[in-house]
């Protein structure tokens, strides 16, 4: 009797210990989503690197050249405020999960109301990009590949940030217009510039959005060495936009204008995170910061 009780207790303990693992395996086996829509270039390219082809990708700012060639035959969903993708088009793809952006707050809610799982993967910090890479891997049942991908990313970013020789003062602008916004340290572009060794000019301003319209007086007083503008324009607009920025009376006396270090970046890699983080940092260092 005593032996039976001991055996029963042991069996109960074993079942209690094993149950989570069994159910977890069962969950990961059954719940790996088959039909994924990725609305951000980061999410789309991460899936491609993990060997997963989404059923739809979001149209990216600045065109589709930032997307992996592996995704060239994937349905592209145009994105617009406030929902992001057209919900009917999205629904027709029958997604199990949508990897979305915080920009589409209203749309994310609407997708969830349609019974679609929504996860936001749009990092504004490189550390967050590492984390989200792993989480996407976990989602699609490719943890091992995600860990390898993560390791490779960290290694390439470390290499890209080695040997920084100087730390020029940088003003990073969003848009051109008559009142461009300054990108702050909690924006993706700000994070890249800081990692590339730039001293980001923010006037000590914090803003949840990552952007702020900063007084031109501050620009004159802080005297940036480099000005990088990120407008929504075409490559052919770069010369005229550069001239326009140089003529701004607030900036004419800055070191940036005097030394011909006003640049216009149109590939949007400073606007939205992608998986090409190391390449973006290297480009910023060689083309703009020259450090």
């Amino acid at each position: 009797m005593k032996r039976l009780a001991t055996l029963a207790a042991l069996a109960a303990a074993l079942i209690a210990l094993a149950l989570p693992a069994v159910t977890g395996a069962a969950q990961s086996g059954n719940d790996v989503p088959k039909r994924i829509v990725a609305l951000t270039p980061f999410a789309a390219n991460t899936l491609a690197k993990l060997g997963v082809t989404p059923v739809g990708v979001g149209e990216t700012l600045g065109g589709q050249t930032r997307l992996s060639p592996k995704l060239k035959n994937v349905t592209v969903l145009p994105l617009s405020h406030p929902n992001g993708p057209n919900l009917e088009q999205l629904a027709s793809l029958r997604p199990d999960v949508v990897l979305s952006s915080r920009t589409w707050v209203k749309g994310n809610q609407a997708m969830e109301d349609l019974g679609i799982e929504v996860r936001v993967y749009e990092p504004l910090k490189i550390g967050r990009a590492y984390r989200d890479t792993y989480r996407i891997g976990l989602l699609v049942g490719k943890q091992r590949q995600a860990r390898a991908q993560l390791k490779a990313m960290k290694k390439s970013v470390e290499a890209a940030t080695k040997g920084i020789k100087s730390h020029p003062k940088v003003m990073l602008l969003l848009g051109v217009g008559r009142t461009p916004f300054t990108m702050l340290s909690n924006s993706w572009g700000g994070e890249i510039v800081i990692k590339a060794g730039g001293e980001l000019l923010t006037g000590g301003v914090d803003s949840d959005s990552g952007f702020a319209r900063i007084s031109d007086e501050l620009v004159v007083a802080e005297n940036p060495d480099v000005i990088i503008a990120v407008p929504h324009a075409n490559a052919s607009d770069i010369p005229s936009l550069t001239e326009y920025l140089k003529d701004n009376p607030a900036w004419q006396s800055t070191s940036a204008a005097q030394n011909g270090r006003i640049y216009v970046s149109v590939d949007n890699s400073l606007l939205q995170a992608g998986t090409d983080i190391a390449r973006t940092i290297r480009k910023v260092r060689s083309a703009y910061l020259k450090n």
């Binding site: 405020h81 969003l174 848009g175 051109v176 217009g177 008559r178 009142t179 461009p180 916004f181 952007f211 319209r213 007084s215 031109d216 007086e217 407008p231 929504h232 701004n248 009376p249 607030a250």
Partner: peptide, 17 residues
């Protein structure tokens, strides 16, 4: 491209010399 237009629509002067 809307953020570039917001200040114009809301009305405002700029330091454009």
């Amino acid at each position: 491209r809307a953020p570039s237009a917001i200040f114009f629509i809301a009305g405002g002067l700029t330091s454009s010399g």
